[in-house]
């Protein structure tokens, strides 16, 4: 079942779109627009799933992901990475750093929603479900 999702995204319009989609799908949505303070927000809000943009002001999404995986508390937090750069290298790097899924902007709404659902299911079934990835 959908739970709480946190969106870390600096483009307000994109944040609004994703927020609309996920709320409609039953998620409790929170948003955060700055990379530098993202880790604090994650600790504070303790989301079930994280949607993380790669290019953020203050701190890059990849750096944030690296810290998350190094912290035992957030080691298994399912993370969906988003990027608008669209380079294979970024995708490889994100997955290598432990992202559970990866979407390139612009994405199809259904794809985003499905990916998040699948991530939540896998997380529920098994706590060790790292690398579950997109269905």
């Amino acid at each position: 079942m959908p739970g709480r999702v946190l969106l870390v995204e600096d483009e307000t319009n994109i944040m609004e779109a994703i927020g609309f989609l996920l709320s409609r799908d039953g998620w409790a949505v929170n948003g955060h627009g700055n990379g530098a303070t993202a880790l604090e927000a994650i600790a504070r809000l303790a989301p079930d799933v994280l949607v993380l943009d790669m290019m953020l002001p203050g701190r890059s999404g990849l750096d944030i992901l690296r810290d998350l995986r190094a912290d035992p508390k957030t080691e298994h937090l399912p993370v969906l990475m988003l990027t608008a750069k669209g380079q294979i290298r970024d995708r490889d790097m994100a997955l290598a750093l432990g992202a559970n899924a990866f979407l390139t902007k612009p994405f199809a709404n259904a794809e985003l929603v499905e990916t998040l659902r699948s991530m939540a299911r896998t997380a529920n079934l098994d706590d060790v479900a790292r690398g579950g990835g997109a269905a």
């Binding site: 483009e11 319009n13 994109i14 779109a17 994703i18 989609l21 290019m55 608008a84 750069k85 669209g86 380079q87 390139t104 902007k105 612009p106 994405f107 199809a108 709404n109 259904a110």
Partner: peptide, 16 residues
């Protein structure tokens, strides 16, 4: 690529 994809993301998402 980044600059073009960013507005396109909003456009695609909201139009869908």
């Amino acid at each position: 690529s980044h600059e073009l994809r960013t507005p396109m993301t909003s456009i695609r998402s909201f139009s869908e």
